[in-house]
């Protein structure tokens, strides 16, 4: 066991955080990610000229509430969010020189679909998937997360990137919006 002495320190440091992670995952929804207000997750897969983005956010961060709309004001907010999420190029801007075009958009959310949403724990999420097709894959080196301007309540974006250079995790904030890989 002596081999792992320094790593045991690492493990000791890491365990509380991971145990916490387990707790958040819960058992009701097998792969439900952590639901922390103000924080969203972004998954980025780069494969040649194809760029796949998947945004998973608590509705609170992008909408302000997590239940089905109850009045006209909330209905208007939902309609506005639908419109915002539909225009993926305004939320995420890949390297300009790469000439990326939004090819496919998919938005999944019970609340936005008019269903009661908000599971037993009273929380609701939205998932938006975007696929870009890029004309110059060599020049595709990163993206700017512009969605912080659209969603002022979003304080943190935890990003996982998978590209030809490997896998990495990054964190973006309203003050640090540039992601490179």
């Amino acid at each position: 066991m002596k081999r792992s002495a320094p790593l045991l320190l690492a493990l000791a440091l890491a365990m509380p955080a991971l145990a916490h992670d387990d707790h958040k995952h819960g058992h009701k929804h097998p792969h439900q990610h952590a639901h922390v207000h103000g924080q969203a997750e972004l998954k980025v897969a780069v494969d040649g000229g194809r760029l796949d983005l998947r945004l998973e956010s608590p509705l609170e961060a992008v909408l302000g509430f997590e239940h089905a709309p109850r009045n006209d004001k909330e209905r208007a907010a939902v309609a506005s969010l639908r419109k915002t999420l539909a225009v993926g190029e305004q939320l995420f801007a890949p390297t300009t020189a790469a000439g990326c075009k939004l090819a496919e958009t998919r938005v999944i959310s019970d609340v936005l679909d008019g269903k009661p949403g908000a599971g037993e724990d009273g929380h609701g999420d939205v998932v938006a998937e975007y696929r870009f097709a890029c004309a110059q894959p060599d020049k595709l080196t990163g993206l700017e997360a512009r969605l912080f301007s659209n969603f002022p309540k979003l304080r943190r974006l935890d990003v996982q990137v998978v590209s030809g250079k490997g896998q990495t995790a990054r964190r973006l904030t309203p003050r640090m919006r540039l992601l490179s890989w």
Binding site: A10, L13, A17, V162, Q167, T168, A169, R170, R171
Partner: peptide, 14 residues
């Protein structure tokens, strides 16, 4: 587990 992502998270913790 995405090994590269898990390692990035480990380095962040450390």
């Amino acid at each position: 587990v995405l090994p590269g992502v898990a390692l990035s998270q480990l380095w962040e913790l450390l």
